[in-house]
């Protein structure tokens, strides 16, 4: 078990969110969209210019920018 930032996850990699370290508007938005502790995610792909990143969450797709993904810590299996 290892914890890394969401930005550094590879395509098709799975993991579980352990922390969303941001308050204010960005934090609220991230949480409103369902990215909270304990949520399982999988990286679905990235936009043509590598940013934003698209991820799979509970059978649906969300996208966020790399610099927003930085605030999200994910536990991954190795």
């Amino acid at each position: 078990m290892k914890t890394i930032s969401l930005r550094h996850m590879a395509k098709n990699q799975r993991g579980t969110i352990t922390a969303v370290k941001v308050a204010g508007d960005l934090g609220r938005r991230i949480r409103d969209m369902g990215l909270v502790n304990g949520t399982e995610i999988m990286i679905q792909g990235r936009a043509p210019l590598n940013d934003p990143v698209a991820l799979r969450i509970r059978g649906n797709t969300l996208t966020l920018r790399n610099n927003e993904a930085d605030y999200i810590e994910v536990e991954i299996d190795e």
């Binding site: 508007d25 991230i30 698209a54 797709t61 969300l62 996208t63």
Partner: peptide, 10 residues
């Protein structure tokens, strides 16, 4: 900049 987080609906 403002948060981007959004949904890609089916």
């Amino acid at each position: 900049p403002t948060p981007f987080v959004m949904e890609l609906p089916p």
